[in-house]
Design a protein around this nucleic acid. Structure first.
Lengths: 150, 150
DNA sequence: GCTACAATTGAAAATGATTATCATTATCAA
DNA sequence: TTGATAATGATAATCATTTTCAATTGTAGC
């Protein structure tokens, strides 16, 4: 993601907050800037630590509250990792899946295989009506493979 | 799962604890009985509430400790749900995926589509080396569809 | 069957993440 | 510019999980 993309996304998110009736504050700007501009999964504390440098008065509680609103607006998504902590990342258009680096938490969205046949089959075999699904792939990103090799 | 299957699984798990150098105690027996015999995802508190009826001295801490050992031996797996709580279920042979009822937490394993082509493709497209994956489907089981309709 | 020893236990306290409370501050429509 | 009120941060409360520790209990070896 280029610097311009990050700027655009940040501006767009702030507009969305605005038009949804929420106020745009310094605290929210700082949180939005960190999450909108990150290619990595980040948990609330990490977001706080980075954002507080840009906006020193920021409180951790406000990070939680801002993430809650961003999630409500569909701008970020909450991701479960093996260690159970909740992390966040800018969400993609439509339903996509995640490819996550287990070493640095870099995450990329991808459009998965079409799981419809599988769901139909399971529906009739097991009697389930499928409503939703999660698919996450874990591995090493290019940068981490290289530093691992070194 | 029949009553015999449940018995077998319980016996098998207790043997595994034994041969792995762990002691078989009343507390562990109670926890094993609940988890080995359940077709539903259960969190530690739920397991505790059921198991304490069979073994009144049981403490919640021991439930956590027993689940930790069962997971270490590969007998149970920890599952992440949308609400973030950790739940457990008897694990399947080999790598399988889960079909989870969002209403009653009934869960069934299934052998998923082969995701190898997808992983290979992503490997070359994005430069990731895939090590692991999660696939979970959420829906309504037959019983819940029926009681929903009523 | 006993014994001794170490693993295991449950109660209570500690921890860590998240949420609620509340007086103060800051946004933004008018 | 101003006023209603949304948002804030500090603090306390809550909840799930982990640690501590003295007492208890399996079990290997006799």
């Amino acid at each position: 993601m280029t610097k311009l993309d990050r700027q655009d996304r940040m501006t767009n998110w702030l507009e969305r907050l605005q038009t949804s009736g929420y106020r745009v504050t310094g605290s929210r700007r700082a949180v939005v800037e960190v999450v909108a501009g990150s290619a990595y999964l980040r948990n609330p504390m990490e977001i706080y630590r980075i954002a507080v440098q840009r906006y020193p008065g920021l409180g951790l509680v406000t990070v939680y509250r801002t993430l809650e609103k961003l999630e409500e607006l569909g701008l970020v998504e909450r991701v479960h990792l093996a260690d159970g902590c909740h992390s966040y990342i800018a969400s993609a258009q439509g339903h996509q899946h995640l490819l996550i680096c287990t070493r640095c938490n870099r995450a990329e969205h991808f459009s998965g295989d079409d799981l419809t046949p599988l769901m139909t089959e399971l529906g009739s075999d097991r009697g389930f009506t499928i409503q939703d699904h999660w698919l996450q792939l874990f591995g090493l990103c290019r940068a981490c493979q290289e530093s691992e090799a070194a």
